[in-house]
């Protein structure tokens, strides 16, 4: 005995096609836009300083981005599912120290890597379990685990420090080596990004993460194992943070109890700049990786142009605000376009 909803006339195929193309363009444009900004920035820097794109210069650029790209990839998985993981910096720190501690005692390099990843998985499982079972906002839960993991790290590490000289030579060589201008670490990061992107695009579990972030209630009604998916996203994020910790050790050789402090905010910035919607459901790990590349490049670009590096933080902040402003403008324009379409046919 209720009345509900109106019966708008079906839209014509042509108009739908137009709207679809528009929407597609808007959705795809993000990654391209970041890439363009990045390339323009590099081009300007190169024009101002011809040494910038030397083999070593390119290598440094990529090496610097590697760690952030890895963690941002993991973070993107979590953010796409409408959650967030603030404990990634702590996870990175404790994993890096664990791997270093093990190597210091004469351990095997590959096992050290596995150890770091395993520790990351442990932290991820903890986060995932708390968020999915506790029904508590992820922001608060992972803020808690940020301090818990950092606290455990501090107690365990104390004032100890691991330096490159404590580590086996091949391990640090791997960290700084590469094929020409392509560092090994960057290749690892690239492989991870491609694999995760492929998973998100082509596997049920990946699509369900988008569904979850897009409309959690609908995901539940569609029979998606919500808790398992969230647990998986956090576990993957933890694993990648752990891996990033091991690579951090290989790259810098220098780890103490403060390693990775405050890193989570950089990571979240990279993900958001890369076009992953903070409200979930939209974005890609390619975007997140490009966002990470863009943010770290600012660090290299400024010195190359002779600008003081004190500007880095401000510029990163501006990029973040710009990214969000662009998202908002695009969303409004899109809504207006869709409304117009509906008005025309409704």
């Amino acid at each position: 005995m209720t009345l509900t909803q109106q019966p708008p006339a079906p839209a014509t195929g042509e108009a739908r096609g137009g709207a679809t193309r528009l929407v597609d363009r808007v959705f795809r444009i993000r990654e391209v836009a970041i890439l363009l900004v990045f390339l323009v920035m590099i081009a300007i820097t190169q024009a101002g300083n011809s040494q910038f794109l030397s083999e070593q210069g390119v290598k440094d650029l990529l090496l610097n981005a590697t760690i952030l790209v890895l963690v941002a990839t993991g973070q993107a998985l979590v953010v796409i599912s409408r959650n967030v993981d603030l404990s990634v910096g702590s996870t990175l720190g404790i994993s890096a120290f664990a791997a270093g501690d093990y190597l210091q005692g004469g351990g095997d390099s590959f096992l050290a890597l596995l150890l770091a990843v395993a520790l990351g998985i442990g932290c991820g499982l903890l986060n995932g379990a708390l968020v999915s079972l506790g029904q508590v906002p992820a922001l608060v839960v992972t803020l808690g685990t940020l301090y818990v993991i950092r606290g455990v790290d501090s107690i365990w590490v104390g004032s100890r420090q691991i330096t490159a000289s404590d580590l086996p030579g091949p391990f640090t060589d791997f960290g700084s080596g590469g094929l020409g201008a392509l560092p090994y670490l960057a290749l690892i990061a690239l492989a991870v990004v491609v694999a995760v992107a492929y998973y998100l695009r082509h596997f049920g579990g990946g699509r369900e993460l988008y569904a979850l972030g897009s409309n959690p209630e609908a995901a539940r009604l569609a029979g998606i194992p919500v808790r398992r998916r969230i647990l998986a996203a956090y576990t993957a994020c933890g694993a990648l943070s752990g891996l990033a910790g091991a690579l951090y050790l290989a790259r810098f050789g220098n780890v103490d109890s403060a390693t990775g402090n405050g890193y989570e905010l950089t990571v979240v910035s990279a993900v958001v700049v890369g076009g992953v919607a903070f409200t979930g459901g939209a974005g890609s790990v390619y975007g997140a990786a490009l966002g990470a590349l863009l943010l770290t490049s600012v660090n290299s670009v400024l010195p190359a142009l002779g600008v003081s590096s004190v500007w880095v933080l401000a510029i990163n902040g501006v990029l973040l605000v710009l990214a969000i402003a662009v998202d908002r403008v695009v969303a409004l324009r899109l809504a207006a376009a869709l409304k117009k379409r509906n008005a025309r046919h409704g």
Partner: peptide, 21 residues
Amino acid sequence: YQEPTLFPDLSVAENVFMGRQ
């Protein structure tokens, strides 16, 4: 369901088959 429960970010085809693609 009475209230449509769709995923706004996903395509129509994905909405139809979500969970059992």
